[in-house]
Write a protein that binds this DNA or RNA. Structure first.
Lengths: 225, 225
DNA sequence: TATGAGTAAACTGTAGACAATAGCCAATCC
DNA sequence: GGATTGGCTATTGTCTACAGTTTACTCATA
């Protein structure tokens, strides 16, 4: 007899601890993105290990991964430092993000079905509600989900993984900015949905490009404050 | 007194062996790309460590990095397996490569100066000579350098790093193919140089897109053999 | 006071040892 | 006879210890 007969979810799939390095990785990433760990800060393995209640090994492994993904700089024989984004790098990152998101929009327009469009509209409505309710966190979350959904509809896993990384870093650099862009952002989302619904690849690309480009402009305007 | 007055590179920065994990990483990557380690093969840490004459630790760290970059799959509590590329994934990867290279071409066209164009022509000539001499390895190398140079002229570090990763994996998947595309490839390169020299962003994008697209077609034609 | 060597502390890089887990095969029970 | 259970083996996950570097500081000296 196999397990097949059991009702799904009868066994709560008792949550596996998973490799420690994973959890350390996520914990550190959380600390970095929330700026509990500041850019330029020296991360000492033994300190982190003690603080997290694990040995140095998992911490090392997590730091190495963070290094390859650009979150920390690993200077040999000296240790890990939280990456300090430069203006130039932030701009380059936005360029890449624009590129990836625009391609995702194009692919989504090419292949998305009615159910996909519907899901996008649902998310869009949720975002608009959040904006109206001045629920900033909710709006940001809905925004992330919206973009993720577009990426999913594009159906390109490689593209999605790259975009996920780039996106998270962009969000880190631009956290002060993201909160400013409210209503306008969702109007643009509506346009994007329309383009995808029409299977108009060119328009979808253009709209998404303009959309992310607006974010960049908002960022540079911030400089004047 | 600061170091600022010193000419760049006056100090040869006496080269250190560098961390073991780096060398292990490169060694393993070499073994994978040359297919000495076959896709799907189980990589046992202790074996690799013994074979390379180091302890398990650097091997682990190298494997983790290879994992995040998509070269090996790391199944928990079971070990590392050389990644097995699927048809679909290869195709998606090519799509992304096309995208990144095309953007690089556009940026290069926007900002490249005469010296950059000259460097490209030099590389192009070298590639053509290699093709005429039936020097396949030389031609492949020149090709890689050509694309790298375009990327350099684009002046976007983030884009360059992403493209470098994607490129290397593409070359891994398509090694049997790359060798077939000889003369035609360099004609297209010439066109690209012309577009860059003219600062014609649109044409540069289009040429590069067509160029990488040809590679994909060649790949799918291979299926018929 | 400025300079330089010398020294000590802190941290990383590497190695080796132990514990935990998944996979496999044989023995056992219905 | 087939499935299940129990133990065995191989391999990974984690921890501890030690060696090698780098940095910062102290103190003697010109």
């Amino acid at each position: 007899m196999t397990v097949r007969g059991l009702p799904q979810g009868a066994v709560p799939r008792l949550e596996r601890p998973g490799p420690l390095r994973e959890r350390v990785y996520e914990a550190l990433l959380e600390l970095i993105t929330t700026r509990a760990l500041r850019p330029g800060q020296h991360l000492v393995e033994s300190e982190l290990a003690a603080q997290l209640g694990v040995s140095r090994q998992p911490v090392r492994e997590a730091l190495q991964r963070l290094n390859t993904e650009g979150w920390v700089d690993l200077r040999p024989a000296q240790g890990a430092f939280v990456h300090e984004p430069t203006e130039e790098e932030a701009d380059q990152l936005l360029t890449v993000r624009t590129l990836l998101e625009a391609e995702a929009a194009r692919l989504a327009a090419a292949s998305a079905g009615p159910s996909g469009v519907e899901a996008l509209e649902e998310l869009c409505a949720r975002g608009e509600r959040a904006v109206l309710a001045d629920d900033v966190d909710g709006a940001v979350a809905a925004n992330a989900e919206f973009h993720a959904k577009v990426m999913e509809l594009a159906g390109n896993t490689v593209l999605a993984e790259l975009a996920a990384q780039v996106d998270r870093r962009v969000r880190w650099y631009y956290t002060p900015v993201a909160r400013q862009r409210g209503k306008q952002s969702w109007i643009e989302h509506r346009e994007l949905i329309a383009a995808i619904s029409d299977h108009d690849e060119q328009r979808a690309t253009a709209v998404m490009r303009a959309h992310t480009e607006h974010t960049r402009r908002t960022y540079h305007e911030r400089e004047r404050d």
